[in-house]
Design a binder for these strands. Structure first.
Lengths: 366, 366
DNA sequence: GTGAAAGCGCTAACAC
DNA sequence: GTGTTAGCGCTTTCAC
């Protein structure tokens, strides 16, 4: 480890006290309780500290004693690039960071990529609690977090009923999308969704796989669709659902291609995220399909790029979600009563959804 | 603070040892030096730990003992929104996070907004060192960081010769831009720059203000321009330089407007960042000025949006910069020999720079 | 392979 | 207003 020019011989609170001929308490008070000693004495303490190069009470020792770290740990089992590039994750991170900042707490990013099975970083984190964002239920890092005797707030996933949780009402939001499309007249649809389980599967997702998804958010959204469309008389088992492991517009595009190849008759593509929808939009354009005339495309999240292109989507308050997670963690709660905060979402009717054209229209023009 | 369901009565290493009838050393070894005890005993220890709900050695106590925190602190005196939204900052953050992850270290974001004068968070941070990114010389948080007996690596700013530093060669890079424009024939230019000092100044920056800038990066870039253009016979004192406090495309646009009002004769606008240049581009379009025919605009940084629109700019490897900063901090250095890592930059000739039109052309068309 | 002793540097009662 | 006393929970020589 590099050493700065300041790497001087460490003075401690005790050595300072000795030098001054006072007790350690007095020195401690000089830093932590200025009202507990005379201004002159305090001044003398601080001056001597400066002279000796004493940097103030050691944070780790203080933490040990006070049982407070002044930091919040963030567990986010994804590649870090994702955390910083995915608009949803960035918004969440920003909100969380703001909540931490308000409370004067630091935000510790725990190194936990999906590849890394090493859970030691979770054990080593000197924090007062954890925020867990969008992690699959069976993640080993999550298990390690739950072993620590610290408060935990989950956002989005997983949904564990003993833990505090904050997120949008995915089911209701997706129902709104379904109703919108059903009202427009769509019955022949296809779905693009994100990763359903930790293992990579780029392709169709069977009903079985959908039902056993370990990513709760995706599962909820799919379930909501399945129920709504079933009620409208659609046989969900025949609705093609294409899954992608990577959450990028590029994979949205290839997924849309796969879907359209699977069933060229579909009149609408419902995507469980805006990123995927943006990719689908690109693919539709590639194929000369006009949106929404020839094909309806919907997203989910309400990221800035989606609003820019007028995507029909569900807007969720990502920044508020992060902030709420931080606040919940930092506020005290009644033990044994896990809180469950449901965030408002909003169906945004954009320019990418319209009634389906009849079969004739689709083959012979309007 | 919220409590999870796991907030059980804390077991400690000592209580576990007592329960098992072994010494604390043995329990400690079970976790930290598996080879120091028999597999059976270790298994027994771990099982009892599980039964008692002992979460493993307390990270803070371990830190105190080992004098290692397993985390790197990041000081970034800006609003957090900036850290997560500015493309340069995001790239840096990502690179830094990757370096930390490689080393199994956490990354602690220190709460230190420009408004907050409270330096306690720096004192409270349980870290093994600090990375300081783009902070003005006179920042109180920086002073607090330097008081801690820990290694420090600075990126971009400030440039303090006793500290490790990593960044691009701003002077050379900006010289390249200047030479490019001079070669094209531009002599009547204007400049858009970012914040030069902690106090807000949205408007023209005098030569004096330029010379006393506390943001080293901006200062270097301006100095490079001043020198290059002076050598080309341009009187720098007459070159309008417009400063903006906020680093957004919106402020780039208003700055460009101000600049063009100040001197409608300029044939080129040099921006010290891509964000500003992107804003300038918008303003030029607003005014019906064609780029590059009527007006040349250049940026700095090489952010994705800039490349997308074909901006003439300087590309710097932001991710590498973050990664290098992290690695430098984590690697050991020879004490007393601060390292200075200069990153390669690249002049990107885009579609926004061309020879100036002659005065006649500008008034009467080609 | 296991244990005893000695702190790491600090804060919080409580007494003076 | 200041000092005394007790740890916070752990790791680490160094004996055995």
């Amino acid at each position: 480890m590099a050493r700065s020019t300041n790497a001087r011989r460490p003075a401690t609170l005790a050595s300072l006290a000795a030098e001054l001929g006072v007790s350690r308490t007095t020195v401690s008070n000089a830093y932590n309780r200025p009202d507990q000693l005379s201004p002159e004495l305090r001044k003398r303490v601080l001056e001597t500290a400066r002279r000796l190069g004493y940097p103030g009470p050691d944070p780790v020792a203080r933490s040990l004693r006070t049982r407070k770290a002044g930091a919040v740990g963030l567990l986010l089992t994804e590649n870090l690039s994702y955390a910083f590039r995915d608009p949803g994750a960035v918004g969440f991170l920003e909100g969380l960071a703001l909540a931490c900042e308000d409370a004067g707490h630091g935000l510790l990013l725990i190194p936990a990529s999906p590849e890394r099975e090493d859970v030691a970083a979770v054990h080593r984190a000197g924090v007062d609690g954890f925020v867990v964002y969008s992690v699959p239920e069976d993640d080993p890092h999550l298990a390690a977090v739950l072993e620590r005797p610290l408060p935990v707030v989950v956002s989005d996933q997983p949904s564990i009923d003993t833990l505090d949780w904050v997120g949008p009402d995915d089911v209701r939001a997706m129902q709104a999308v379904a109703e919108h499309l059903i009202t427009l007249g769509h019955r022949r649809i296809g779905v693009l969704c994100m990763r359903l389980a930790r293992g990579r599967n780029d392709g169709p997702a069977s009903v079985h796989r959908q039902a056993n998804a370990s990513f709760h958010v995706q599962k909820s959204r799919l379930t909501a669709l399945a129920e709504s469309f079933s009620e409208a008389g659609v046989d969900w088992a025949r609705v093609p659902v294409v899954e992608r492991f990577d959450h990028t517009t590029a994979s949205g595009a290839t997924a849309a291609a796969q879907l359209l190849d699977l069933d060229p008759e579909i009149t609408a593509i419902i995507c469980t995220s805006d990123i995927l929808a943006l990719g689908a939009l690109t693919e539709a354009r590639e194929r000369g399909l006009r949106v929404p005339e020839d094909l309806t495309i919907t997203g989910f999240d309400g990221i800035p790029d989606a609003e820019r292109v007028g995507l029909t989507t569900v807007r969720q308050p990502v920044l508020e979600k992060g902030r709420a997670a931080g606040r919940m963690l930092l506020e005290s709660a009644e033990p044994g009563r896990p809180r469950h905060v449901l965030l408002e979402t909003q169906l945004v009717l954009g320019a990418t959804s319209a009634p389906p054209r009849s079969a004739e229209e689709r083959w012979f023009g309007p």
